[in-house]
Design a protein around this nucleic acid. Structure first.
Lengths: 110, 110
DNA sequence: AATATTTCTAACCATTAAGTAAGTACCCAA
DNA sequence: TTGGGTACTTACTTAATGGTTAGAAATATT
């Protein structure tokens, strides 16, 4: 049998929850990750998927996600432009979080 | 074999992720839930556990969590006052989310 | 009579996040 | 030459969040 001791550390700067939230908090962040999910998606598509987000916020969020290495971006030198986004290996690792959040909402919230 | 089709709906007002985040987003919210966890904890204890939070924010968050029925509060009519907080049944259901967030931070973030 | 304890409130200010609206760039098609 | 399509960018405004300080309440202790 496995011995499982739950030690709760104080939430200082090393708190793993705090470190994750530094990257993942924000009104739109997780919804964008949720929408990208396992697919490759163009900017315009994503904009339609995340209902209500402004162009400014979407790009701002995407840039931040790319910076944090959760999302990768590929721009094709075409006219009109085409830019594709998808989750990186690290970004894919956030999906279990988002699945839990979705499940919680689905099961418990009106 | 299980047939698993992943349908991704647009994130409008009915999006379960959005509904969950309405309650759970915020700089301190999840860290407070993380600290309360499965224990019963006094206000002062919690304040020490969530390093860096101000009294105003802590009470504001706790009130909001009580309002949303994630946390229950029991005040003893003593002097000096003693108030205990713990997660409700609904609040306990957020722990899987927070465990995922903690695990993500632990495994992937410096 | 002054001080400590604990939880919580209120007023005020600073900072940050988010929203709005307009504009840019490039080429193609009409 | 006007307009359409796509992916941004910029400047500005407003809303949300967070921080600071002071204080209240009631009793026990010094």
């Amino acid at each position: 049998m496995e011995k499982k001791i739950k030690i709760i550390n104080a939430c200082d700067t090393n708190c793993p929850v705090k470190k994750s939230l530094n990257i993942l908090s924000g009104k739109w962040t997780m919804m964008i990750l949720y929408q990208i999910n396992t697919r490759t998606i163009r900017y315009g598509e994503l904009k339609r998927a995340v209902v209500g987000i402004s162009e400014k916020m979407l790009i701002q969020e995407l840039n931040s996600l790319v910076e944090h290495n959760l999302v990768s971006k590929k721009a094709y030198p075409e006219i009109p432009p085409r830019v594709e986004y998808k989750l990186t290996e690290l970004g894919l690792k956030t999906l279990p979080i988002i699945d839990q959040i979705a499940a919680f909402g689905l099961e418990n919230l009106v």
